[in-house]
Design a protein around this nucleic acid. Structure first.
Length: 1160
RNA sequence: AGUCCCGUAGCUCAGUUGGUUAGAGCGCUACACUGAUAAUGUAGAGGUCAACGGUUCAAAUCCGUUCGGGACUACCA
């Protein structure tokens, strides 16, 4: 039986299938972890996917990336546990359930109970689990799918609650009033995730206006500078502020200026009321509203309706001078309930720019996030009024309608939707009739009136009252609710927040210790994000997610944050004692029992948690109905996957399974998972959650377009794996582009990898197996030739191999897989296959099992075996097959093996350098032989090559590799030429050295040097320097500051490449000719052997018909011919019968009959 | 709109601290080789290094601006 299996074809998908079966049979994955018990751990965290959607080709990419480093560290001897996970909560799941059931959010609790709804979510979320498992398995991604963490499980939730309670105890969890995207049509707040769904930001045309806010004079409470400027005018002074949402103007309570922005006071005429006024705006924007040419117009010449309006700049001040200035309320429908005396003043805002508008921003703290922040900082109240329930509310209600306070006798407004889009056609028509009624006081002919939106009417009102400076329509992107298609409102809502901003500096500081790939994402996108960190809005008004574990009474005086099931159970008992609850849903729960059964007897989700009423000081506490952001779920995974701190406490506390050494996800997770992991890690453990992270790019189609089902260009991951096999697919994805760049996925690239890498390796292995089996040779420790005693070629490839191990190790230890994969490709193709195997071929099939042959076997075996290990992280199936075929007795799997570090002693850079010399010369000589004017086939031996000796090293290097070079190019001798008269030299400046020395003179010097004569060069070489005349000065050029090359050897066929030059003697002597013929003859005999399907080892008898031109060639090379062709006998016979023999052409003139038979 | 990434041959990509013929593989064309053969070798064609401007003796490389592709963030009024 053959020791080394031989295959007839290479079938990568089949290999993968078979190896996968072996892995299952032998439990290789489990062993790869258990066999390293006690070893240094390598901690990897799996970012949980949602099994709610089908896996795509990009998941093959990201999972390959994850897998590579885990397998690599295993090869290095580390223990790599990796737990799979499932992200189970969140909006997408709610949506798919609603779609399936044909319901909307409003129906929850009506058509379907919350309970039923959540049950449905629980089912739906794991719908495609089997597809994910199949993909994971088929592509060879090793992760423990038997014991995944699942975010909806009670243990997981309990850990999350504990983390939240920790935040609460550190006072990092608070309830606040903030401005959030809100969809009045859907009656729900929206997350930024929802706003970023495709198509949500749409260009809309809004009515924009510049309103005029009248300054209260004298400006006694402001800076003297501003007061002085205002004294220069007797006209009323107005501040100009631009808005694209006039409906927020009734809620204006402040105007913001930039402290460092320069402002001007301008005297002009109101284009609508034609009143002479003075206005304040940013100096930078003066030209925009007041073209310079109009400065020459005279006020007294102005006539009503003139397009060009005169103006005069009265004075200048900076933003800080304006702060504190009071102005009259623009639309005095109602005053803020709190601190009305602090309203209507100028404040500073760092967000103010002069890129748009007037450089002064209208502030409505109830409808803008920036506005709210700035107003709060300045002590300006928001426009909140007391409602019927004695609660403070904004002027727009939750349906998106103005409250009754905004009642305008002429323009309506009260009770109306602030955005036209919220109205149906019928409502519009009805409203139009009303408008016709009350607007007849302003518009004489109302019959032609069309519906005017709230914005339009407010602008009209300002215009009527002389408070409008400019109006126009303005097109910008505005977010829409993806469910109702209606524009979103920014609206103040109650929310629970994590005070992330309090730990901003620490997060930034620790971020600098994280190894980011690519680095720019860490410093750039992620770093910037941390620098501008806002508090984390944790609340979600949904149903399917982890409930916020906070209970409050109605007065908001008592508050409880629960951190464990144990605690909750005790609190419920207390509530029962107070008579608030009748039974404890956690009655069966046994504290301290972490069994599955114990934790499956209850549910912490809504509605169950909603039904729990707790007690404090005799008051009833109800749960805050919000759920938490699902990003918290996944960010909590380092702890919650372990049920920390209830179980596995030491793993985290003693930093054994925390932080992760490595994580990887798509770049879109930068502000998702990467952030939430980091935030929780820093806030609660003052530690990074991961030490290294790769954010991988997208997988695009081959034309660089995003893959989508709609376009039909999405590659199916299963089809791809089936067709090309996981190894080639994985290899292609990693070697083609750095993982953080986008990948243009082209199956043709996989085919290329199949052929160039796997095909070549397969051929190389087959070659090895073929001859090793023939010789019955099994490579083992016992028959290893000592490295120093192996031939040059063997030591060279072993040196190359160890250099490769070094490179691959460095790259992979640095989380840089692409150069590692490419280095392997280069080794296999350029070195192992195209040089080592090519030059060693005859060593394998020639003669007996000599020491040289054993050395060749051992060397090739070591190369292939080590390659299998190096490739194992990338191509786990093929590598395993190769490794086991080579080392059948020794191992169950390459993935259980240990890769030794590169052997520094085996690396001989000098040897690598001289072999490169041989490779380069070989190419040069081949190219001369192929020339049209030469055209001598490789089988024809030639006498000699000549090489000019350029330095001392050169000759000794060449001597050591010349036998390989000469054999490869079929030349007898190499001659060294030292006397310079034989060849023509060329000289070139060394730009790097001379450039630094000469600076500006470089150009002239380079030209002068290039123009050197042969004598000049000789002189320079002789004395070691040359005095060059440059611009009248003498500049000394040293020998090392120029490069001298051989340009030509007159009278010879010459080839050069950079510093290397070779000349070929093309004369064919009688002897050479005879030898060439003998080689031709060998070749023909070999072909016949092959045609006759003889075994490689068969001995033959050869008969050749006599031919005068040939006889000498045969006789002189008799032994050579016999040994090459395994001829037991070789006869020249006078004649061969045509029937048996074949007529062959040996060259243009010589033909002969050949006859071969197998020797029995 | 902002931040970040990418733009080098028909395609996929290299290109060190700036240094003078800008490389490789694939593909294409031609020739050769034939006991690795669904391989292999040699040669050829193919480039305004996205564009413009600047710094420098010298720019694919450094700095600006613009254009194109992508991601993330974003109601800046």
């Amino acid at each position: 039986m053959n020791q080394y299996p031989e295959y007839s074809t290479l079938n990568l998908p089949k290999i993968a299938e078979e190896v996968l079966a072996d892995w299952d049979r032998l439990s290789v994955f489990e062993k790869s972890v258990s066999s390293r018990e006690g070893a240094t751990p390598f901690v990897f965290y799996e970012g949980p996917p949602s099994a709610n959607g089908m896996p795509g080709i990009h998941h093959v990419m990201s999972r390959t990336l994850k897998d590579i480093f885990c397998r690599w560290q295993t090869l290095q001897g580390k223990q790599v546990r990796r737990k799979a996970g499932w992200d189970t909560h969140g909006l997408p799941i709610e949506l798919s359930v609603e779609k399936e059931l044909g319901i909307t959010k409003e129906d929850i609790g009506k058509k379907i109970s919350v309970d039923e709804y959540n049950h449905k979510c629980r089912e739906t979320v794991m719908r495609y689990t089997d597809r994910w498992e199949a993909l994971t398995r088929q592509m060879g991604y090793w992760v423990d799918m038997q014991n995944p963490y699942i975010t909806y499980e009670n243990k997981y939730i309990e850990s999350v609650w504990w983390l939240l309670q920790q935040l609460y105890k550190k006072e990092l969890l608070y309830k606040g009033y903030t401005i959030q995207p809100y969809s009045p049509a859907a009656g729900t707040g929206l997350s930024s995730h929802e706003l970023n769904q495709p198509g949500c930001y749409r260009p809309v045309k809004d009515r924009s206006a510049i309103a005029m806010f009248r300054v209260k004079l004298p400006a006694n409470n402001t800076n003297k500078n501003a007061a002085a400027v205002f004294q220069t005018t007797t006209e009323p002074v107005y501040i100009l502020a631009w808005t694209t949402t006039p409906w927020t103007l009734p809620s204006n309570t402040a105007l913001a200026v930039g402290n460092k922005i320069q402002y001007v006071l301008v005297k002009t005429i109101n284009p609508f009321s034609h009143q002479v006024v003075s206005v304040v705006l940013a100096k930078d924007l003066l030209e925009k509203y007041f073209p310079a040419k109009n400065a020459e117009l005279k006020f007294e010449d102005y006539k009503t309706g003139d397009k060009n309006i005169p103006f005069a700049v009265l004075g200048e001040m900076n933003g800080a001078d304006l702060v504190g200035l009071r102005y009259e309320q623009l639309l005095p429908y109602v005053l803020p309930h709190e601190n009305p005396e602090a309203a209507f003043q100028v404040i500073a805002g760092d967000f103010v720019t002069t890129s748009d508008g007037t450089g002064i921003v209208h502030i409505a703290p109830t409808f803008g996030a920036d506005d709210m922040r700035a107003a709060k900082a300045a002590g300006v109240p928001p426009m909140l009024v007391m409602d019927e329930n004695e609660k403070l509310v904004p002027l727009v209600d939750l349906r998106g309608k103005f409250r009754s306070e905004v009642n305008d006798p002429q323009f309506g407004l009260a009770g109306e939707f602030v955005k036209e889009d919220y109205l149906s056609a019928e409502q519009k028509a009805a409203d139009l009739e009303k408008q016709k009624q009350y607007m007849q006081f302003i518009i004489s002919d109302t019959s032609k009136l069309s519906y005017l939106s709230v914005d339009e009417r407010i602008v009209l009102k300002l215009q009527n009252e002389g408070k409008l400076f400019k109006k126009e329509s303005y097109e910008h992107n505005y977010p829409h609710c993806w469910r109702t298609d209606k524009p979103v409102l920014y609206y103040p809502l109650d929310s629970w927040f994590i005070r992330a901003s309090a730990k901003k500096e620490r997060m930034a500081e620790l971020n600098q210790t994280i190894g980011w790939r690519p680095e720019s994402t860490g410093t750039g996108r992620f770093g910037e994000w941390l620098n501008n960190l806002q508090d984390w809005n944790l609340s979600r008004s949904r149903y399917w997610g982890i409930p916020l574990p906070i209970w409050r009474d109605e007065d908001e005086t008592e508050e409880l944050c629960i951190g464990s099931v144990e605690e909750l159970k005790a609190e419920i008992d207390r509530s029962i004692a107070a008579g608030f609850m009748t039974e404890n849903p956690l009655a069966k729960f046994t504290v301290g029992d972490f069994s599955k059964e114990n934790y499956e007897g209850f549910d912490l989700h809504r509605p169950y948690s909603d039904n729990i009423i707790l007690e404090r000081n005799g008051k009833k506490l109800f749960r805050e109905t919000d759920l938490i952001d699902v990003w918290f779920d996944s960010g909590a995974m380092p702890y919650a996957q372990l049920h920390y701190p209830f179980e596995n406490k030491a793993l985290v506390d003693e930093r054994k399974y925390f932080p992760a050494d490595y994580i990887a996800e798509g770049v879109d997770q930068t502000r998702g998972w990467f952030y939430t992991l980091h935030a929780i890690g820093v806030m609660l453990f003052d530690n990074v959650a991961y030490k290294n992270v790769i954010s991988n790019g997208l997988v695009l189609d081959k034309n660089g377009n995003k893959m989508s089902k709609r376009l039909g260009n999405a590659a199916d991951p299963f089809d791809t794996l089936n067709q090309y096999g996981p190894d080639a697919t994985r290899w292609y994805m990693i070697s083609n582009a750095d993982p953080w760049d986008n990948l243009k996925f082209d199956p043709a690239g996989i085919t290329e990898i199949q052929r160039s890498l796997f095909g070549t390796l397969y051929n190389t292995y087959s070659f090895f197996a073929l001859y090793a089996n023939i010789d019955g040779f099994v490579v083992s420790d016992k028959n290893q030739t000592e490295l120093s005693k192996r031939p040059e070629l063997d030591r060279w490839i072993i040196s190359k191999l160890n250099s490769l191990v070094k490179t691959v190790s460095e790259r992979l230890n640095d989380y840089d897989p692409t150069p590692a994969a490419r280095a392997i490709e280069d080794f296999v193709d350029a070195h192992l296959s195209n040089w080592y195997v090519r030059l060693s071929r005859r060593r394998f099939w020639k003669g007996e099992l000599t020491e040289d042959k054993q050395s060749a076997y051992a060397t090739l075996h070591e190369c292939l075996s080590t390659l299998a290990q190096l490739m194992a992280p990338f191509a786990p199936f093929f590598a395993d097959r190769l490794f086991r075929d080579l080392n059948a007795a020794a191992t169950e799997s390459v993935h259980l093996s240990l890769l030794p570090a590169a052997n520094a002693n085996a690396i001989d850079l000098e040897l690598e350098a001289r072999m490169e010399l041989a490779q380069q010369y070989s190419t040069l000589v081949h190219s001369i032989r192929k020339r049209k004017e030469v055209n001598i086939r490789a089988r024809q031996p030639l006498g000699r090559i000549m090489v000019p000796v350029l330095d001392e090293n050169f000759r000794s290097r060449m001597e050591q590799v010349k036998h390989l070079l000469l054999a490869e190019v079929n030349v007898k001798e190499v001659e060294y030429v030292t006397e310079s008269g034989v060849f023509v030299k060329k000289i070139k400046a060394n730009f790097q050295l001379l450039g630094k020395k000469l600076g500006k003179q470089m150009k002239a010097a380079a030209a002068a040097i290039a123009a050197f004569s042969q004598e000049d060069i000789a002189l320079l070489e002789q004395q070691g320097y040359f005095d060059l005349q440059l611009e009248g000065e003498t500049t000394r050029i040293e020998r090392n500051e120029v490069e001298i090359l051989v340009d030509d050897v007159p009278g010879w066929q010459v080839a050069t490449d950079g510093r290397l030059t070779v000349a070929l003697d093309t004369e064919i002597t009688e002897n050479l000719r005879a030898e060439g013929l003998a080689r031709e003859l060998v070749n023909r005999i070999q072909n016949m052997r092959k045609d006759k399907n003889f075994e490689v080892t068969d001995k033959i008898n050869v008969k050749i018909s006599a031919n005068q031109l040939l006889n000498a060639a045969v006789n002189n090379n008799f032994n050579y011919i016999c040994s090459e062709t395994l001829a037991a006998s070789l006869e020249i016979v006078p004649e061969l019968p045509e029937k048996e023999a074949i007529l062959v052409d040996l060259d243009e003139e010589i033909k002969t009959y050949l006859h071969i038979t197998k020797q029995n």
